[in-house]
Amino acid sequence: MTVYRRASGWMVLALMVFCSSLAARDLNQDEALALRQQGVILPLEQLLQQAMARYPGSRLLEAELEKKHGQYAYEVELVTTEGVVREIKLDATTGVLLKDEEDD
């Protein structure tokens, strides 16, 4: 019975590690700058302009660069002139819109 518990414990641990590796990771400003200088991602200013143009007059709340499944994306939160908070996700390498939804 002890061997079974130990084996199942290792399986649970391995599953936890695997699942945590699939989660998105926020990159810090130094990492973002290095990726921009290497030409891996587009300038934040360009993508912010694109996101803000979807809702003229909106105000920026937050912008984060994240990496998930090997893909870089900017997640932008803004508040529209109607007071609605929107979450916009753009592919950081191409600028393609990935998501635009109301944030709760």
Rank of each mutant, 00 (worst) to 15 (best):
L47A: 03
M52A: 09
Q29P: 00
Q50A: 10
R25K: 13
P43Y: 04
D26H: 07
K67S: 13
D100W: 07
G9I: 05
S21D: 06
Q50R: 14
I88L: 01
L48D: 02
T93W: 04
N28H: 11
A63D: 05
V12N: 07
Y4T: 13
P56N: 09
Q49K: 12
G70S: 09
L27K: 01
R6T: 12
E45S: 15
H69E: 10
Q46R: 14
L27H: 07
E62H: 07
L42F: 06
D26Q: 08
G57H: 12
T81W: 06
E62S: 10
T2G: 14
V12I: 15
V96H: 12
E45D: 14
Q49R: 13
V79H: 02
T2P: 01
E31L: 03
M1Q: 09
L90N: 06
L98M: 15
R36W: 07
Y4P: 00
R59K: 15
E45Q: 15
D103Q: 11
Q49W: 01
E82F: 05
T93D: 07
C19D: 04
E31V: 03
I88P: 01
V84Y: 04
F18H: 08
S8T: 12
L60K: 03
R86K: 10
T93M: 13
A63M: 03
H69C: 02
L13V: 12
R59Y: 08
T80F: 03
V17Y: 03
V40P: 08
D91T: 05
V96A: 15
E64D: 14
R25G: 00
R36S: 13
P56R: 10
L65W: 05
D103E: 15
C19R: 11
